[in-house]
Simulated assay, not measured.
Amino acid sequence: MAIDIGGTKIAGALVHPDGTMTATTRRPTPPSRDADTVMAAVTEVIADLSGSPLWPSAVRCGIGSAGPVDSSRGTVSPVNIGAWREFPVLDRITEELAARGAAVPAVLAGDGVAMTAAEHWLGAARGHANALCMVVSTGVGGGLILNNQLHPGPTGNAGHIGHITVAFDGDPCVCGSRGCVESIASGTAIAGWARARGWTPAEPGGDATAAGVAAAAEAGDAVALAAFDRAGRALAAAIAATATLVETDIAVIGGGVAASGETLFAPIRGHLADYATLSFVQGLKVVPASLGTHAGLIGAAAAATMLLPQAGTPTATA
């Protein structure tokens, strides 16, 4: 069983050992300040899954959630789900599963960790024993594969590359630090930096988000190109620092900003040569993620398989 909880939708699926999905379902995330109202949408997703004839065959449950998460306590406080602060989502879902005859082990992972598990199992990081996977979107998150094992850390937040400082005298970040990758390379930061330097969409009322900046960069707009070059440099510095620390050999990047393609990847690769200079990181590769919108559910299932292998089906790296 896989459950993917985000700010706009809550999705579920039954995921087979080869990564195919059945009984896929979703509900919009309620715009409610009441925690139980949001949980009710999760319960509806579980109810849909329990109606599948394959429900009794499930052996574990993976829960991927927007963060922050604390997997050691089973709690979440998603920035974009205001009703949930220190919400005990793991216990609540485990109780709901048991009530529907599925007393299976369950695990909670942040969405960056889930994406990492997915890309290592079936995506662009497959075959790499040591990998950094990232989501570059409204925020910047990520996760680590070390020695073919998912490495979420004690609270599930290891690999959170978005809050590595790459500019020690940079702008304040929403996390309270300064000069973080997210404050430079997130979609919000890219668009904000460009607008502050006079960039506007070519047409009145046009797209003023990072996607609009990307389109302008593709058309040759100097400010838009500089915004993506700046973001690429920040990402390159953080990727190189991570690789130097733990010897990853590939960085996989997904998320909405990564959809801009070479507009983002070209400056990352260009700047990487300035930061990945030691012999053991000079071969570091940066590639796009390959699983797209399926990464959340596949990743929740993969994280459960990697972190709860005792349930007796093939591991995610098989």
Rank of each mutant, 00 (worst) to 15 (best):
L132C: 06
N147L: 11
A118K: 08
N157W: 12
L122V: 08
G156W: 00
L146T: 14
G170R: 10
L225I: 14
A211I: 14
N148F: 05
A102M: 15
A189D: 04
T165A: 08
S137C: 11
I145Y: 00
S137R: 10
G206M: 01
I184D: 02
V223G: 11
V174M: 10
A99T: 12
I190P: 01
A99R: 15
D229P: 00
H163G: 04
R230C: 06
A237T: 11
A231M: 01
L132N: 04
E218S: 15
A98M: 08
D171S: 13
P201Y: 07
D221T: 13
H120N: 09
A222D: 09
I164N: 15
G176N: 09
A194G: 07
I190T: 01
A210G: 01
R195G: 07
A226R: 12
G123D: 01
F168K: 13
A189E: 04
G220S: 03
T155H: 15
G206P: 08
G179N: 06
D221C: 11
A211W: 11
G198E: 09
V174Q: 12
G212A: 05
H120P: 09
F168I: 15
P172Q: 07
V113A: 04
A103K: 13
V107L: 09
A103V: 12
S137Y: 06
S183M: 07
